[in-house]
Design a protein around this nucleic acid. Sequence first.
RNA 1: GCCCCGAUAGCUCAGCUGGAUAGAGCAAUUGACUUCUAAUCAAUAGGUCGCAGGUUCGAAUCCUGCUCGGGGUGCCA
Length: 651
Amino acid sequence: MNPLSEIRARFSTTLSGMVDDSDNLLSMIRPAGDSEFGDYQANCAMPLGKQLGRSPREIASEICETVQLDGLCQKIEIAGPGFINLTIDDDWLKSGLTAALADDRLGVDRVSKPKTFVIDYSSPNVAKPMHVGHVRSTFIGDAISKVLRFVGHTAISDNHLGDWGTQFGMIIYGYKHFLDEAAYRQEPVAELGRLYKYVRKLMDYHAAVKRVPELEASLDELKRKQADLESTDSPGDKKAEKQLKKQLRQLKTKIEDQAEAVAGLKAKILEVDGDPDLVKDALAHPNINQNAQLETAALHEGDATNQGLWEEFLPLCRQDMQKIYDRLDIKFDYELGESFYHSELANVVSDLTDKGFTKESDGAICVFLDNHNAPMIIQKRDGAYLYSTTDLATIKYRMEKWNADACLYVVDHRQSEHFEKLFDVARLWGFDEVELAHVAFGTVMGPDGKPYKTRSGDTVGLSGLLDEAESRALEIATSQNPELTEERHREIANVIGIGGLKYADLSHNRGSDYEFNYEKMLALRGNTATYLQYSYARVQGILRRTEADVDSIRANPGEFLFENEVERQLGLKLIRFGEALDEVLVEYKPNVLCNYLFELSQLFAQFFDKCSVKDANSEDLKQSRLQLCDLTARTIRRGLELLGIGVLDKM
RNA sequence: GCCCCGAUAGCUCAGCUGGAUAGAGCAAUUGACUUCUAAUCAAUAGGUCGCAGGUUCGAAUCCUGCUCGGGGUGCCA
């Protein structure tokens, strides 16, 4: 039992005797903001005083008299307007640590009411290279799944692959017209990738050729407007003046954006124009955009040739994608892609229609919702279905198959409106018991504060990103410890490179955008995976140098001794691992666990500095310190494992 | 137009279901390696929590307005 839930349990009895609903008050018991005030503080006397019309300090002392904290807290003080400051009893702490030492779960309880969670994350489009944008969903989803499982829930991870989309129409079109058979026989995946990129290029070319004149016309129009506004006489009154300036500013950014877009499109045209083969193919395939779309439509309608090609391509693409997941050590329980649901889509629409929830509008079948202006369209005018339809079919399947208590969607925050609508429709449809949550995350930014792109403006490919992280890590590992073998260096580089990447992502609040930076990610100091991994390696160093036998430490523990204040702090932090995990799951925020592990490692570094294990004054103290070391190492290792990050005994 | 999100130290970010003197890392300055890994630790300095109001014992946190920035916005995913 972690101290916070223990304290809350004790307060619960007292508070429920004073008010009807004590849950809110219990949540006001929290870790102390300042260690001067003790370990925990209960702030519930102030609001309670108000509610009961009495002095908060009076209430506080009444609470203190009745609450049973014997054996749990050694000091209870009332301070300021009515704060109740609590200090955990050293004996309680020591017995908790002793129990954790012998426990594979480090003293973390399993939840009393396990639930079934379905977690939808990663979800890339197969046949398109994975890029930096997939990183966050993959890491965050994986970490949440692992924490859920560790605390005792059932977590079903499901990679909702985009395996039925327009990219297959493009590849099929490419296969039919541009295939290099020898290359396909030798390296099918590479050839399919080439075909995808090739068709993409030609499609972009035609789209750009068409779009540039339109954009340029609109750009001229904007510039005219700008000139008009600039030559407008000053309106005299301040408000109008301000309005005018604002309009001009907005126009200016719009002009800049469009000019940039035109330049980008022109670059794409030039790229094709500069290559005679590309020009030839571009001219020979003027309707490639429409025709690729037709290939997709044919696939969806069950065309035998396209179906056959799709069945041939899909396993190849998935195999290729699997390489990335293997490097990241990410596994899924299920990988039910969009194609898995395609036969159900018509039923979704007809069922919703039968129940009277749909309405036809401009030929499309829609579900209108009270709190949204735009409806959710579930079938297009041309009869095709949309991702909203697939998502609804997916919810139905997950409920029927797993009877989920909660479905978590770890998806980019830009899709929040889609999920609001989706969840509303699902509830309308009858799935109103399940918790449906969009675990949204922000964008990975480049050093310019814009979404992370390569210098040429393309998205950053994931496999290249991993290569770069590992090669930089290799350089660091080699220069730090030149005496190790190259094989060891590579192993270290893998663990700190991939770990650094994951930690950089997970340590940010998932809702925020963050700036991607290799240097910071792998920095030798600061709040990085390396720092945590180094702490772990230092413990292992101590255990080696003292020739400690961890099995016997765990089996025959001595008393924990707090000779130095930092030893008590470290012990308290260790016993609070479960609190951190609970906190992660309140809002599905892995950064809470990162913070905990960083603070734990900082305390260990202080302990390392001040409290020698090898040269402890007595055997008892040495034993106690070894126990703290062992617990620290196991907590860091377990915590990092839940984040999907590895550790090393030496680095 | 409408909707959503953000603005915290020079930089990158925590903190946000209201709590005590706003935190960390980096960068800067200073000190500590014959020592269990210095990939470390100790210390100094750095702030009008975008602006203006409001709510209250108490506001970075909640409410309103404004400024600036980002995103979304019926037939892409």
